[in-house]
Design a protein around this nucleic acid. Structure first.
Lengths: 104, 104
DNA sequence: CCGCTGGTTCGACCTCTGACGAACTTACGA
DNA sequence: TCGTAAGTTCGTCAGAGGTCGAACCAGCGG
């Protein structure tokens, strides 16, 4: 497989982040990751979504700078880039996650 | 002209809000409104945008629940629904505006 | 070496979105 | 009353975005 591209902190743009979070599926993934810290790709779909679509969403999140993906044997482990995001856009991720919780 | 539709606070959804904010043009409008409080539609375009496109963006913002529009004679005055948004999604608008400022 | 498991990539499809000009509506002012 | 200024609405266009199945690729286990 190809190199996994992750943007540098300074390359992360606000519109990209907001767009990535504006999809319910991706927002759900981010919520899950905020609780579980690190999960493999396959455990992030709610069953109602195909492998390829899930992979697409994870790519959007990764390229927006929201998540980090590392290879572990045959699977990829995904986690939130919490610290870097906090440094770049202080409070943003937290308030979005809080809002997501409120919206239940 | 038709009735101007504004969603009730409880009808405002997080994905809609984030999607509305994920467009640079609309984000700029929200930034402007966070400073000036209330402006007429025409003064919100950066010159580089047509009237109809601007009207479209303002409609997206309004229907996402971000802005309030009132009629004043021949023009419409647009303002942020700051309090209602704060109540619905505490801290969200503030951190987005802060992030927008950081991203300069 | 072969098959399985976990993911990615590739078209294809259809919808949504942003952009524009042109036509229309409304209110104000001369 | 007529024109003008401010916005909306409409139709259209091109491009982006989400979804899927199928094909593909990499490791691991037998």
């Amino acid at each position: 497989m190809r190199e996994i591209h992750h943007p540098k902190p300074e390359e992360i743009t606000l519109p990209d982040v907001l767009h990535a979070l504006s999809d319910p599926v991706r927002l759900g993934i981010v919520e899950t990751l905020s609780v579980d810290r690190e999960r493999s790709c396959g455990t992030l779909g709610n069953g109602s979504i195909s492998k390829s679509t899930l992979s697409h969403h994870l790519k959007v999140l990764r390229e927006a700078g929201l998540t980090w993906t590392r290879v572990e044997g045959t699977q990829r482990l995904v986690s939130l880039r919490t610290e870097e995001l906090e440094e770049r856009f202080p409070g943003l991720l937290g308030s979005v996650l809080g809002a997501a919780k409120v919206a239940s």
